[in-house]
Amino acid sequence: MLAVSAFEIGAQHYFILAAVMFTIGATGMLLRRNTIVMFMCVELMLNAVNLTFVTFAKALDDSAGQAAVFFTLIVAAAEVAVGLAIIVAIFRRRQGVTADDIDLMKG
């Protein structure tokens, strides 16, 4: 265990903040059924992970952490584009985008 000072902000503080933010996103993912809000919770989790990456980049003085953020960003953009297209396609068919409505792989 590391001693964490409350006033000397270090990597530990950022990690704990990112952990809490990730947890809020994960819990929201489990609690909500509106698929769009679930997507936003995924974005929250990705942001928390990005914060961890950048914190590591700073703590280790290694720019690979910042480079990794760009890949996360690209994956997030692709995920949002495809995911929202799927939501639009589902909405055309059945006037609702609650996760409970989407229980079949076929249309």
Partner: peptide
Amino acid sequence: LAATESFHVNAVLFYALAALAL
């Protein structure tokens, strides 16, 4: 990893921003 090493970030600023983010 020197996790206890300070980043020289203002603690008040950090906690205010953390509260906003959460």
